[in-house]
Design a protein around this nucleic acid. Structure first.
Lengths: 281, 281
DNA sequence: TCGGTCGATACCCCTGGGGTATGGACCGGG
DNA sequence: CCCGGTCCATACCCCAGGGGTATCGACCGA
């Protein structure tokens, strides 16, 4: 199978609309229609149920969407890692992704300890938005990442657990709930004046909901201190709190596990060294 | 990156010879040369050191070979699983690979127990040669496989351990060593009249060595009973022994672990059911 | 020095992927 | 009930690029 055809199919399967998919791919709609039906002919399988009003996935199409994404990620990763190896020119560095503002202290300790190891190489740290690390790792932009369960999906990655922690609710100082010693998730849900803010998805769109739209932690904290939102974050994020907000333990929020993750086929000594250092912290 | 280019590169990287690689790919040599240098240009990376007498991998080429194989496997798997889903036509079965003659009893118990589960589906059992299961699983020909550590590589697969066992040496009855109560690997290495037989690799060629070339277990056991070879196999293979041979424990051979393995992205209920049944045996 | 090997280059042909124009099915509104 | 709008499929054209053959140039061993 050709990678191009697969990319086309994934676009259509995600949009469920030939016109929008074609636009996203930067081609006209007719060649896209043709490419998909050609793919179906080659596979001997119907992938989409289509009428002139709606497009839906068949069972086979659902399988191809899931497996195809994995394959395209692997292809992209092969390309990216080759590029990075070549541009490093022998003196191979290693790229690490982590969520900006999360596990700050852990990251600092890790980088410091690893730099002291014999044979350590330069670490290129990529700070990214929530959920972004996983994509960077799977697509080969980085070699290793710090992920946070249960938020990030570690399926198909090798991982080593580093630490677990509870979560705290960040509230406006002076809010009635802020005098409590601890909270439950239900308490927050029962406070409609404090909706959960909404982060952009990877395509830039926002999920529906009552909360304000945010793009950065700074923005988020400002909204909280203005009394317009509340948010639940891991305890370690307390380090970045500002005036005008308070943090209270949420006793029934899921515990967050920080893990170091890397692709299972990695043969990189640098990645192995980072992982070893991390587990010894 | 295009899958075609990647396939071409993998062929050249494996053959380290443009002419042979082109022959294997069924194209002429000049287009292959062109495709590779075009790939190098696109990636901005030298992949091969070439003189008119030899071709070797650069560091970047080595990375691309390893990552590229994974990507091509994933692509192949996406295609195969889609085909199988479609041809199953809704009433989805599940394909399981296992080495012919290995873990016989375990397999029988597993199939029997799974068939008795509520909601179980038909299991298509694929018996294959040594080391073949792994390839079938990675390339999507099957959904789940029984593998044997440390012989099979489970990198990048999800696994559940089922059993571990020691290994026995199968010798000709009447051989001086056959009167011992137990053996060590060194004893076998010190008996040049009993070389280890050689199995064909996936490309059909044989590794170099003194032992006879074999293609089947029957053939193998006949050679042993004729006094021309000896072989070390897991204990459970005792069930398939024949007259004229004896099996002695090899105390320092690595223990063999039978595992059930599946691709990490599998969402198949049938695979989950098989795994659950297997771990409960 | 010469023949043999092997990758690169030059040049040609034609497949097939991309474009525009248009058809045909379906739906909602007046 | 027709009419306009939406959306996928079909028809047709163009040309980029992938594949072929012929040949060159570098290198090695006899």
């Amino acid at each position: 199978m050709d990678a191009r055809e697969l990319r086309y199919f994934v676009a259509v399967a995600e949009e469920l609309h030939f016109g929008r998919a074609a636009q996203r791919l930067g081609i006209a709609q007719p060649p896209l229609s043709r490419a998909i039906s050609q793919l179906e002919r080659r596979l001997g399988a119907a992938l989409l149920h289509r009428t002139s009003r709606s497009v839906t996935l068949t069972e086979a199409g659902d399988v191809l969407l899931r497996e195809g994404r994995v394959a395209l990620d692997a292809l992209e990763a092969a390309e990216q890692r080759t590029r990075r190896t070549a541009s490093a020119g022998g003196r191979a560095g290693v790229a690490l992704a982590t969520k900006a503002g999360a596990s700050d202290e852990l990251l600092a300790k890790l980088l410091h300890a690893y730099a002291a190891e014999p044979g350590s190489v330069e670490v290129d740290v990529v700070l990214c938005g929530p959920g972004e690390q996983e994509r960077l790792l799977r697509s080969g932009r980085v070699d290793v990442a710090l992920l946070h369960r249960p938020f990030d999906d570690t399926t198909g990655l090798d991982v080593e657990e580093l630490s677990t922690e509870g979560q705290v609710a960040v509230l406006p100082a002076g809010h009635p709930l802020s005098v409590r010693a601890e909270l439950r998730l239900a308490d927050l849900a029962a406070a409609p004046d404090l909706p959960q803010p909404r982060w952009p998805r990877s395509d830039g769109s926002y999920p529906a909901g009552p909360g304000p739209e945010v793009q950065s932690q700074t923005q988020l904290l400002q909204l909280v201190s203005l009394g317009r939102a509340a948010v639940v974050v891991p305890e370690s994020a307390r380090a970045m709190l500002r005036e005008g907000v308070v943090a209270l333990p949420v006793v029934d929020a899921p515990r967050v596990t920080t893990v170091i993750a890397w692709p299972p086929h990695s043969r990189s000594l640098a990645v192995a060294g980072l992982v070893r250092t991390a587990t010894r912290l």
